[in-house]
Each structure stands twice: as structure tokens, then as C-alpha cells.
């Protein structure tokens, strides 16, 4: 049983979600999965009971939470402005807007 491979598998699943999902909330969930995979490495690579790995984990959590708050704020603003959280849809609306301005 190897925790590094477990971490790699979770990282791959997270990256797959980040690349293929078009919903902003799902993108955020993928980022959370990637962060979990990284923190799992911190704890398990320095042998689980070790203080240094856990200290790194606490620092990683702080960054992760800040990133989460930022992404959620952006998500809410995008939803309010465009009425959808789908990235493709948002891009299409913006493109239509630009084309409309060009025609005028």
C-alpha cells in the first residue's frame, strides 16, 4: 500500500475534473480535490506522526481556504451577472456582446 500513488490517483482525478468540467462549482470542487491530494502527501511523506508534515498541512489549509473564498466570491459575482455558472455559456454571452458592439 503506497500513499504516494493514492495521492497521484487523486491528483489525476482532480486535474481531469479541472480540464473537462464546465461548471464553476465543479471546477472549485476539482481544485479542492487537488489540494487534498497535495496535503495527503505532506502528512504521509514525512511519516504520519511527524510534526513538520502536519505544520505544512496547516499552512496549506490556510492558503486553500483563502483560494476557496476568492473562487466562491467570483462564482457568485459571475452567477449574478450572467445568470449561469457554466464557463462555456459565460464565454458565449461575452462573445455575443462583443459582436453586438462591433455591429453598432
Amino acid at each position: 500500500m503506497d500513499f504516494v500513488i493514492l495521492s497521484i490517483v487523486m491528483l489525476v482525478i482532480g486535474i481531469y475534473g479541472l480540464l473537462t468540467k464546465r461548471d464553476l462549482l465543479k471546477v472549485f470542487v476539482s481544485v479542492e480535490l487537488i489540494a487534498t491530494a497535495a496535503t495527503l502527501n505532506f502528512v504521509m511523506l514525512t511519516s504520519a506522526g511527524n510534526g513538520l508534515g502536519q505544520a505544512f498541512l496547516v499552512l496549506a489549509f490556510a492558503t486553500d481556504t483563502a483560494v476557496g473564498a476568492l473562487v466562491l466570491a467570483l462564482l457568485l459575482i459571475a452567477y449574478k451577472k450572467y445568470g449561469t455558472s457554466d464557463i462555456g455559456e459565460i464565454m458565449r454571452i461575452e462573445q455575443d456582446k462583443k459582436e453586438g458592439e462591433r455591429e453598432v
Partner: peptide, 24 residues
Amino acid sequence: LPMLFLSVSSPMNVFSDVQFEEAL
């Protein structure tokens, strides 16, 4: 399955005696 049957690392106990409070 790969994580159950494959192995890429051996545990590294470089800072094995560091306590959590001391590390943080």
C-alpha cells in the same frame, strides 16, 4: 488497484523527532 499493488517510495524519516508545536 495501483496503490494497493505498486510502490514508488520508502518512508523518509528525516525529521522524525520534530514535534508539531516546534515545527509550526
